[in-house]
Design a protein around this nucleic acid. Structure first.
Length: 156
DNA sequence: GCCAACGTTGGC
DNA sequence: GCCAACGTTGGC
């Protein structure tokens, strides 16, 4: 079985519904400009891995759906696009600094599992998401955490 | 809108 | 290599 990840997105920018409506229900997870997240995108995240889609900077923040990795790490094209907000003039095409993966919509959870709800679960106390000051936009999730959150979202 | 926490940059 | 200043994230 593949591994599991949580990816944050501001729904005003790109929501789970945007993913469901996207061409082939797939998007490139681009624009990540943090080295720790970059390392995961480049080295760790594999085709078939599960993704918890998380809405950040909204009230309430919540895990809202599931996606799947359909393409493993490749150079993020936005780093070479001067018109992109994520353009990086110092990145070289033969030595790219930033990476993307592609993810495909799987389904929305029956209901969103909110951040306060996650915090209230003893089983989730060690989640990266819940750690003080944690702001990684791509982060690992354990199989047990995945199972728990999906069960909460599906009302079991 | 505020601000705590964290990451990055650049002077020295 | 240190660290102050600055920028960003993201919950509240």
């Amino acid at each position: 079985m593949g591994r599991h990840w949580l990816m944050k997105s501001e729904p005003d920018v790109f929501s789970i519904d945007d993913l469901a409506k996207a061409k082939q229900q797939t998007t490139g997870w681009d624009g990540v400009r943090n080295y720790q997240a970059r390392n995961l995108l480049r080295d760790e995240i594999a085709v078939g891995d599960g993704v918890l889609f998380y809405h950040s900077s909204v009230e309430p923040p919540a895990v809202v759906g599931l996606a799947r990795v359909v393409r493993a790490g490749y150079p993020d094209p936005t780093q070479f696009d001067p018109k992109s907000d994520a353009y990086d003039q110092d990145s070289k095409r033969d030595d790219p600094r930033w990476f993307s993966v592609d993810i495909a919509f799987e389904r929305k959870l029956a209901r969103a599992v909110t951040l306060p709800e996650l915090r209230a679960q003893p089983a989730l106390a060690d989640m990266v998401l819940l750690r003080r000051g944690s702001r990684l936009s791509v982060q690992p999730v354990t199989p047990a955490e995945w199972k728990k959150i999906v069960a909460l979202g599906d009302g079991k």
